[in-house]
């Protein structure tokens, strides 16, 4: 009797705990299902649109296959595509041009930082300037490219006419001159991207504590000293972010080339993405284009890894 009472009281004590545990695991289970429901459209979409294609690109880079032929014409050729790449002049030219194009990133950043420092402290009409410098960034690259094409017109374009009034006899023919075409594209690219860097820099400058400048003022520091020793080091996380996103974005430049030069003249403006496009959608060479895609992926992947590793090492917080 006594023992029976004991068990019941024990049971009584146990039940709420058990119930709680049961309820908890039930909640956990339902949280799991609900969680999956919330994220599943995204996961499904990403799998179909990005994950599957990138895996397929890696696999197809070992194949020799044209779009127009049926799938049973596909031949596995091992590393042949990559070997062919290493002696493909246009591909090598593309890699070099991509490397040169990276120069636009520091130039954009310097201009943007210069403008940002002035806009942040020393001007009236702040929001006018933000909008004005940002306009090229939000405008369609196709429309902008077309406008610049006319501005750069070799004989009658406004740019060359202005240069000629300033006494330059033979101004460059810009996008139709092999030695100036890439520079022309770079100028337009810088012009487009300054707005973005500027906005990011202004936000970065605003997060620097004012006390630091006040302290420097008391010590009698001049503007350059303050810039060199306060602004520059404290803005370095923003600079690093802009450097990495800028380099990655420079690998994705397509619209400008497609509208303005189509890689020419004499391959002087071809870049990886453009070369890939030509091989894939003009020559219809799936395997070869996929090999270029793999190289492109590896470049961007390496830069991202460098970012991960470098963030702690090179950035002063």
């Amino acid at each position: 009797m006594a023992s029976k009472t004991f068990t019941t009281s024990e049971e009584l004590k146990e039940t709420p705990k058990k119930l709680k545990r049961m309820r908890k695991s039930k909640i956990e289970k339902s949280e799991n299902i609900i969680g999956f429901l919330f994220v599943s459209p995204m996961i499904l979409g990403i799998s179909v649109i990005v994950l599957f294609p990138i895996v397929a690109a890696f696999i197809l880079s070992f194949a020799d296959w044209k779009f127009v032929t049926s799938i049973d014409q596909l031949k596995w050729v091992g590393f042949d595509n990559f070997v062919a790449l290493s002696s493909d002049e246009k591909f090598i030219k593309s890699v070099i041009n991509n490397a040169i194009f990276i120069l636009t990133v520091p130039i954009t950043m310097l201009c943007a930082l210069f403008l940002a420092v002035i806009i942040d402290k020393n001007v009236y009409l702040k929001s006018y300037f933000k909008v004005a410098f940002f306009m090229p960034y939000i405008s369609s690259v196709v429309a902008i490219a077309v406008v610049w094409q006319v501005l750069f017109h070799p004989s009658q374009g406004p740019i060359n006419q202005v240069l000629m009034t300033f006494g330059i006899q033979n101004p460059p023919t810009w996008i139709s001159d092999p030695s100036f075409a890439l520079i022309s594209l770079m100028i337009i690219h810088i012009w487009i991207s300054i707005g973005f860097s500027l906005i990011v820099y202004i936000a970065g400058l605003q997060s620097i504590p004012k006390e630091l400048y006040e302290a420097a003022d008391i010590d009698g520091a001049n503007s350059w000293y303050k810039f060199r020793n306060i602004t520059f080091p404290l803005i370095s996380p923003t600079s690093f972010f802009l450097l990495i996103t800028g380099i990655i974005a420079s690998f994705k430049v397509f619209d400008l080339i497609a509208v303005l030069t189509k890689g020419g003249p004499l391959n002087s403006t071809t870049m990886l993405v453009w070369h890939l496009y030509e091989r894939a959608f003009i020559d219809l060479d799936v395997g070869y284009a996929s090999a270029i895609a793999v190289v492109l992926f590896l470049f961007v992947f390496t830069i991202t890894i460098v970012q991960w590793l470098g963030q702690k090492k090179w950035v002063n917080y």
Partner: peptide, 20 residues
């Protein structure tokens, strides 16, 4: 996984996307 796909340059997956 979702974040990792951000590293993929959109043009790298273009050809299989097109076939698909």
């Amino acid at each position: 996984i979702v974040l990792a796909t951000y590293m993929v340059p959109p043009q790298a997956s273009l050809v299989p996307q097109f076939i698909l």
